[in-house]
Design a protein around this nucleic acid. Structure first.
Length: 304
DNA sequence: AAGCTCGTCAACCGCACCCCA
DNA sequence: GTGGGGTGCGGTTGACGAGCT
């Protein structure tokens, strides 16, 4: 079945020969691609326009970067994917010289496995249960864990969410504070049962939040879905609790940032169970990766 | 050496969107 | 408003090579 753009003509399919590449390069160099459907005829190729376009974009374009992905590129992909999901073209825009196809292949063949190996759901970036991890390792296929995605929609929790959705925040919190540079922190991601319970309690207490609060690689934030922009300090932690936990200067800085937005603070403070949350854990989990203090390119992204 | 399995990646397919007549 | 052509995008396929038995 050919493309509608070339259904009337006899077209060649499959791998491109060097001669075909030459013809396409010469044509586009001399004339530009213009209307892709007319390129094969003008370039003397027995291909459809769509195939020419793909070949040019994914392989022949002069500004393409070759070689394997760098660690920095890998981290960027993970960070952007956490926010955008499988929007490969958007992700590729943050990696100069890389194509959506390249990013997608790299994700499916490499990153996905790494995340699963670390017990993270590659779709949601949430911490997987041991059962889910086993399942994903056995069936390393995106379609196999769609069910997880449906049960745990990524990163969103709002005032209308069910208790299940709210407690999803707890599951979201853990991986998000560690993922950003998972290769650096994978060995330090030690989470006790009591921490998990405390987080769950924290999530349960956040029942009156407004808007959609999400976790970014840069820490707590609020994603305005209509604008796709981040607001700082979407989730507020009570100041006295940080003090009680003995958080130091960095925590002060954090709280100063958080307190600058009192949007949710009062409700969070009012509903927070001061005895059930381990701030030492939050402190140790957040601050080492500089999640509050560094406003990096990922923040800029949300935003785009 | 031959056959098999698995991973990678180029290419294809089908759908959605945009633009224009 | 609408239909058709062109384009972009994400999911999927299949060829190919490396490693293993």
């Amino acid at each position: 079945m050919g493309h509608h753009c070339c259904s009337k003509q006899k077209v060649k399919r499959g791998l491109w020969s060097p001669e075909e590449d030459d013809k396409l390069i010469k044509h586009i160099t001399n004339h530009g691609h213009g209307c892709w459907s007319s390129v094969p005829k003008l370039a003397g190729l027995q291909r459809c326009g769509k195939s020419c376009r793909l070949r040019w974009i994914n392989y022949l374009r002069p500004d393409l970067k070759r070689g394997s992905f760098t660690e920095q590129e890998e981290n960027t992909i993970i960070d952007v994917h956490r926010i955008l999901g499988n929007r490969w073209a958007q992700i590729a825009k943050h990696l100069p010289g890389r194509t959506d196809n390249e990013v997608k292949n790299f994700w499916n063949s490499c990153i996905k496995k790494k995340l699963i190996a670390q017990g993270l759901d590659p779709n949601t970036h949430n911490l997987l249960s041991s059962n889910q991890t086993k399942l994903l390792k056995n069936n390393n296929n995106a379609s196999d864990h769609d069910s997880f995605q449906q049960e745990t929609p990524p990163f969103t929790i709002d005032s209308t969410s069910s208790k299940t959705a709210q407690s999803h925040l707890a599951a979201t919190l853990l991986p998000c504070v560690n993922i950003p540079h998972y290769d650096q922190y994978q060995n330090s991601m030690i989470v006790s049962q009591s921490d998990l319970m405390a987080l769950d309690q924290f999530a349960a207490n956040c029942s009156s939040m407004e808007s959609n609060n999400v976790m970014s690689s840069s820490g707590f934030g609020t994603l305005n879905e209509s604008t796709c922009m981040w607001d700082a300090g979407g989730i507020e932690l009570p100041f006295e609790q940080q003090q009680k936990a003995g958080a130091g200067q960095e925590a002060d800085h954090v709280m100063a940032q958080l307190n600058s937005s009192d949007h949710l603070q009062n409700e969070a403070v009012n509903t927070f169970d001061s005895n059930s949350f381990d701030f030492d854990f939050v402190d140790s989990a957040l601050l080492p990766s500089g999640v509050y203090c560094n406003v990096n390119s990922m923040d800029q992204l949300a935003w785009d």
